[in-house]
Simulated assay, not measured.
Amino acid sequence: MTQQLNQKKVAILVTDGFEQVEMTEPKQALEQAGAQSHIISPKSGTVQGWNHFDKGDNFPVNLILDDANPGDYDALLLPGGVANPDQLRTNEKAVKFIKSFFEAGKPVAAICHGPWTLIEADVVKGRTVTSWPSLKTDLKNAGANWVDQEVVVDQGLVTSRNPSDIPAFIDKMVEEFAKGQHQEQRRSA
């Protein structure tokens, strides 16, 4: 992979219960493309990944959410898992952090259950997205156009359904993050 993300900083917002492969593979791809990525979490220390129903590895938190400034980052990655986005969407600071990327027109990538947080941030109305199938009704009720596709790109917002979509998700995520700000991203904020 070329160094098309040199000088870019990417925030990865997670807490315990994220689907491990949905964080580790995109993070590795971002770093291979030259980006600097930081795991940001409402909790300090480490966060626990999951491999579907089984506990996975622990990962060090680079920065606690209370100390994170969205202005320091060029893009945002939101891995899924069931527990991770469910906890984040009830955290006012996490929701505000996510919404700030849309307000600034910065690209965002969310996979699997990750779009739950986008609903809470009120940024999906009028957007075409995909997700884990169980989020379909939630996303439609929030005003999104939900489609069942491997990867969807809508003006800087990249979404995918599940871990099997990761290769396509990574390709589009890197492409959109390289493009930088999208003026149309702001309209959803």
Score class of each variant (00 low, 15 high):
69 N>I: 13
69 N>M: 14
69 N>Y: 13
70 P>A: 11
70 P>R: 12
70 P>D: 05
71 G>R: 15
71 G>L: 14
71 G>A: 15
71 G>N: 15
71 G>C: 11
71 G>F: 10
72 D>A: 15
72 D>T: 11
73 Y>W: 11
73 Y>I: 14
73 Y>L: 10
73 Y>N: 02
73 Y>K: 05
73 Y>P: 04
74 D>F: 10
74 D>K: 09
75 A>P: 02
76 L>D: 00
76 L>R: 08
76 L>H: 08
77 L>H: 03
77 L>N: 03
77 L>K: 01
77 L>T: 04
77 L>I: 11
77 L>V: 06
78 L>Y: 03
78 L>R: 00
78 L>A: 02
79 P>W: 03
79 P>Q: 08
80 G>R: 05
80 G>K: 04
80 G>C: 06
80 G>V: 07
81 G>H: 03
81 G>V: 07
81 G>C: 05
81 G>E: 04
82 V>W: 02
82 V>Q: 03
82 V>R: 02
82 V>K: 08
83 A>G: 03
83 A>H: 04
84 N>P: 04
84 N>W: 01
84 N>L: 06
85 P>E: 02
85 P>F: 07
85 P>M: 12
86 D>M: 02
86 D>Q: 10
86 D>E: 10
87 Q>C: 01
88 L>D: 05
88 L>T: 03
88 L>Y: 02
89 R>C: 09
89 R>L: 06
90 T>A: 10
90 T>F: 08
90 T>K: 15
91 N>L: 09
92 E>N: 15
92 E>K: 15
92 E>I: 12
92 E>T: 14
93 K>E: 11
93 K>H: 12
93 K>N: 12
94 A>E: 14
94 A>L: 06
94 A>C: 14
94 A>N: 08
94 A>D: 07
94 A>I: 13
95 V>K: 06
95 V>S: 09
96 K>V: 09
96 K>W: 10
97 F>V: 11
97 F>H: 09
97 F>Q: 13
97 F>L: 12
98 I>G: 00
98 I>D: 05
98 I>M: 07
98 I>F: 05
99 K>L: 11
99 K>A: 15
99 K>D: 12
100 S>P: 06
100 S>G: 14
101 F>N: 07
101 F>L: 14
101 F>G: 13
101 F>T: 11
101 F>W: 14
102 F>Y: 07
102 F>S: 00
102 F>G: 01
102 F>W: 05
102 F>Q: 02
102 F>K: 00
103 E>W: 02
103 E>P: 03
103 E>M: 12
104 A>N: 12
104 A>P: 06
105 G>E: 07
105 G>L: 10
105 G>S: 12
105 G>R: 09
107 P>M: 04
107 P>W: 04
107 P>Y: 03
107 P>G: 12
107 P>C: 05
108 V>T: 13
108 V>L: 07
108 V>I: 15
109 A>P: 03
110 A>S: 11
110 A>L: 02
110 A>Q: 08
111 I>V: 13
111 I>A: 04
112 C>Q: 08
112 C>I: 14
112 C>R: 03
112 C>E: 08
